[in-house]
Amino acid sequence: MQTKLTKAERKLNRFHNHEIPENEVLVARELTKTYFQGDYHIKAVDNVFLRVRRGEFVSIVGTSGSGKSTLLHMLAGLDTPTSGQVFLDGYDIHSMDDDQFSDFRAKKIGFIFQSFHLLPVLTAKENILMPQKISGDTRYPSYFDTLTRMLKIDDRLHHLPSELSGGQRQRVAAARALINKPDILFADEPTGNLDRDSAGELIDLLLATRAELGQTLVMVTHDPAVAARADRIYHMENGVLREQKPE
């Protein structure tokens, strides 16, 4: 029996592309980002096609300025493309209106930034719980304890971000990204500001939660060791994305 859709769901359905296979959680088509500087224009991302399957770990590597972060921001809906489409879970995110995409983002997407982006006036615990306050999602009340124990930040929960080390801040940021159990997790050089040990621990943790929740992980990284742990590796150069064939 088919359940009756709410008005919001019907509205959202308009952006659903049924041609996209269900197992492809992230699809990018002809994605381009151009920056204009006077008469010159620079293509930061040039006609990118990408398909990511559910539960897959994809890493994007490349030199500085190659456009990999810009691509990730567009894939996560944080930046708008000059042209092209991004489908998340079959929905065209750049065609949705702002409210629809905000709801979508709150529930389905997690993002870990290289520079943490923690709210300075909130303690670690408050930062981690913030996505739940935004989405009103209280489906996982005990997940907070599990997550903070796993991330080894349960003794730092009442500290402000300014009182935490880089590694601790990044783990808080990771906990915040994971607290709503998103379908897809984007990470922009999450280990960029961490030492080797902290970086290794964080990646272990992300892979563990991925395995546990069946999440998709798309990560931009400089670190070849981190990239090597991905199911697929893409290489970005001058805005062009190419899959790196396994050796």
Partner: peptide, 30 residues
């Protein structure tokens, strides 16, 4: 370039934050 004089004191997590069902608590804490 952090205007951290805005954070006045080292704070403990507010019980109000945990109890609050929505975002309005952020305004108060801020």
């Amino acid at each position: 370039g952090e205007g951290t004089f805005q954070v006045s004191f080292v704070s403990k997590t507010s019980p109000a934050f945990e109890d609050s069902p929505d975002l309005s608590v952020y305004n108060r804490l801020y």
